[in-house]
Nucleic acid binder design. Structure first.
Lengths: 197, 197, 197, 197
DNA sequence: CATGAATGAGTTTTCATTCAT
DNA sequence: TATGAATGAAAACTCATTCAT
């Protein structure tokens, strides 16, 4: 890893939370300077413009949770366990998630959907990736005869994800982690009643 | 309504969608000028600062959907019908909702939760109001013996709302109204299986 | 004239010489601020961007000498007198012209020809206008039988202009007004030997 | 020629046209990097600062046409032929000259006269050198009895040069090589009518 | 000698806000 | 009240230059 690559990575990691908290458009280069303690020149030496940094920060932010999800799936000994690990993470780490600005996919999607067009495709891509991971867990559960085969995996992936995100929204604005538990309960109910054989 | 009050209302209504689409921080007074075709003086004559206008615009935006919800409830002849009118609205008006920037509660919550502090309380308040309306429908359904009495109305209100919002998030970023149908289906399932006697 | 129009004109007049001396690209908004003692906002309130101001300043600069030429022509009692008034002006006002940065047409043309494309057409236009004025004096001299009718007015206009500009170039870089006299002598020779009947 | 001298020369030659086209102040080190495909260190290792490079690039640019003039003079079999070779070059190579940004003496003089002071003396020197070359051709023509001895060589040199430059200015901004022919015609007229015995 | 990452003052431009009219 | 010209701080970005490696 060259010096430049190290600095680039450093800038991304140091500024990622600021972008998630303040929003990608409302985070200024001064904010990034404060977060990295680097000069503007150093930042512009590593990124063509603020948009490039915003995208890199978003990719970092989304990769953190996507990789976490992959981890849980990898460690789980059953599809059920894998699916429930996802809401359980928020139940157990609610305050940490709050401190980092909440779900980066939701935050970026709200900015990117009808306004920050340069980010839309990248957000859409990560959203699809997240949904695919959940879908694959369900499909593997079906392949292993753990889950009912007639359940539409794509639909269930979207349903589980939307329950998690909808409750995240409530949790954040109400500053109340109980909504994470609510999501976990509902997802568990769906897994037990509708997916498990 | 005095002239001043009329102008104030005019500014709010003309700028409300811009705020919802661009975000409350990112919408500039130039944007408001363009939307209202008024001068800065006219705007500052009616609002102390941009924050006051942002709050008023948010209150307008959220009141539109809260009033719509009240309307559906008022017109419904049963609790079930009232509850299902909510997701059905999005199923039928998905593109219109997209054009106005999506759900104002979600948009504002994402900005306000850990960043735009002057808006947080007002967003929280409207969120509670929305949840309370749903809860009251459920409670009335229980009072009228339409719904099972042991179901926790508060929990079900949050669950229904979060399913709607989570799918709204997917719908917006994927630019696909099918997620509104997904939310409607899931909410109907819950109403039929868990609430209805 | 509205306040805005007054300020706009004030900015143009105060900054025109700076643009001519430093060049249109190398003149910064700080330079304009210093020249006008106005704030950036005041300047941007009256011009969309620096290019618009640069063009306005150039138009002012070129109009000053084009109007001067028109004046001499208007006051002259013969075509010969009108033509010679042009180089004579530089002979008599060399130091003043130096102090204002020299001929704006030449300065802007050198910048605009292959580089400052947004100014090229406007410079070309003023150049044509200047040449046309000289040509018309010659044509009127021909109409009044003062000048030989077979002389090609367009060619003579370009020749006279290029002699003046070529010597201006020498005068400026050598900081020596004798080249203005050289131009005046050569132009007089041409008028007497080739144009006058 | 040492390695360092080679690199220095390489940088000068690669960047010379950029300086002539964009102007000496307006050409940035990034432009020089792009033109040379070298690093900043390599450039600063060979030049103390941008001004030193600008001067070297100007000296190169002016030397190219001064050497060309010397060449034509050397090859000419008469003073008349030598003098006319100068405008003829532009008549024949107008588009090439345009492509390289036009006459470097004029371009640099316009920047240096009252603004880029560090270049003024060097531009003045090359201008004098160019004028001296023309003057010497005339003087040699007089010594060989080809030209009239009473003609003031210095004056004629300046006149010929200014006609060429004045028309160059028109040619560039009008993007029309006909002005080169106009200059050539006028210079030929002067040589034939006023210098030749 | 050359590299290229870093500096910090400079650039153009936008913004929320004020205030004389 | 409404106007719109003006303010000045802050935005994104570029530049000539330095210096550890």
């Amino acid at each position: 890893m060259t010096k430049a690559e190290q600095t680039r990575q450093f800038i991304i990691e140091q500024s990622a939370t600021v972008f998630n908290v303040k929003g990608y458009e409302n985070t200024s280069l001064s904010d990034v300077q404060k977060a990295t303690k680097l000069t503007k020149g150093a930042i512009y030496g590593n990124f063509a413009d603020k948009n490039e940094l915003a995208i890199a920060a978003y990719e970092y932010n989304s990769s953190v949770i996507i990789n976490a999800l992959k981890d849980w799936i990898g460690k789980a000994t059953s599809a059920k366990e894998a699916l429930l690990a996802y809401p359980d993470f928020y139940v157990r780490n609610g305050q940490i998630v709050f401190g980092k600005g909440g779900c980066p996919l939701m935050n970026a999607a709200v900015e990117a959907d009808d306004h920050l067009h340069f980010m839309r495709d990248i957000v859409r891509k990560s959203m699809k990736q997240f949904l695919r991971l959940i879908r694959e867990v369900i499909e593997q559960g079906q392949a292993k005869k753990e889950f009912k085969s007639k359940a539409d995996a794509t639909t269930y992936a979207a349903t589980i994800f939307s329950i998690m995100e909808g409750n995240m929204l409530l949790a954040k604005i109400m500053n109340d982690t109980k909504y994470f538990q609510l999501a976990a309960d509902r997802i568990k109910l769906i897994v037990v009643q509708e997916l498990l054989k």
